[in-house]
Design a binder for these strands. Structure first.
Lengths: 126, 126, 126, 126
DNA sequence: GTGGTCTAGACCACG
DNA sequence: GTGGTCTAGACCACC
């Protein structure tokens, strides 16, 4: 699993893990029905506590992205019809864009960045 | 000041305040040299403790967006190109976009949203 | 931890703590990877509030000297070349030297003092 | 008067003024008996409040560096026999040096900086 | 156990 | 008036 934790990131580790997995799913690098590494496995790979990974998986499960089956690990769930209120989606986007604007990037460059990231996510098809 | 705190948001309140102010600055709704409400004033308006706002202002000051002077107040400062490492800017953007993709929005709609938010930020000129 | 707060010092207590820790790190008496006392522990030792120490640690974290992890504690981090603008480094030095000159110390004695302090810092190797 | 205030400096303005004047005196650019600009004059030049300068002068007076005479302004006082306890002189020096060490400057460079600043201060004779 | 955040309220320092 | 600091104590989040 291509996840890297960043010690300087102020987000809790379990959320870094959850967010990274979301990106992998969105990018199609983890596909529907595909099994995730076991909690133990991933914890070992990343050098973190079991609970940290368990919490991350639970969060993803709560959002409907994962199905956890006792004894047989977690798999990516059907991607259909998830419902996140529109407003909640806009806030992080707005904040991220504001940061780019404040960094002084011109409109074209920001759009370039967005496009680049978005294509990267979408090229894995869904 | 058009700031609203969201109880469901998991970010700490002081960061919500700081992020909202960043958006206002990026959008040009708070312009260079313009004074911010006093710590006590804003705390009262938002119904939070004075220290919460003080922490937010301090964070913005550390990022160079605000100049705080003791007996006076806080004003928006130098919008001159701040140096935030490119990688740090991309991560939140990536996460926000992944969330949109996972919500099932088609590429066109996502780009539409981005465009809409970005124009809203940029139309205030910088 | 060999830290002593000075009531006559006009710096806020949290900065005294932060500055003292910086000296300890610079002198190699706190080495990379070494854990710091917990916030509560140090607060108790120094007889101050927990928040005061938390603020000091946060300041050090912002400067990249400490890595603080939630459930664990704080450890000394990267001594890799930090980038502080040259001018900011010179100002405190200049002020300290001016004070020595005004105290009437002859050049030789000042240089002796500097040398003494500097060797003390450097003898811990880096 | 060659004083420049730095908005980003966290020290209160009156102390910046006082410290800068100390440097000027130490460097001999303000000599014994020489008059300082009036409070009004300096306040106007620096674009700050009268009280700010008055406080700075009072601080210098308390340290015996200035003599303020009603109606005729302030002059630099006799530089003889000021007594600042040795320990108080060492602390700022130690902190400034620690900062240089943490910035990764090698011993030689630090000594070079010290020497440079010190010569600059002393070349004006006392 | 750890650190993080927030409150209420106090007092100080600055302009 | 402004912001800055500190306390006491609470509750939460993380590992």
């Amino acid at each position: 699993m291509l996840i890297r934790l960043d010690m300087n990131d102020r987000r809790p580790m379990y959320r870094q893990v959850a967010d990274e997995i979301k990106v992998l799913i969105a990018a199609g690098r983890l596909r529907e029905g595909e099994p995730l590494p076991s909690v133990r496995q991933l914890a070992g790979d990343l050098g973190v506590n079991l609970n940290t990974i368990a919490t991350a998986y639970r969060e993803l499960q709560d959002e409907g992205l994962l199905t956890v089956r006792h004894g047989s690990g977690a798999v990516v769930t059907s991607l259909t019809t998830r419902s996140t209120p529109r407003r909640e989606l806009k806030k992080p986007l707005r904040t991220a864009l504001a940061q780019l604007v404040l960094a002084g990037l011109p409109r074209a460059e920001i759009l370039g960045l967005v496009s680049e990231e978005l294509e990267d996510l979408l090229k894995g098809a869904r």
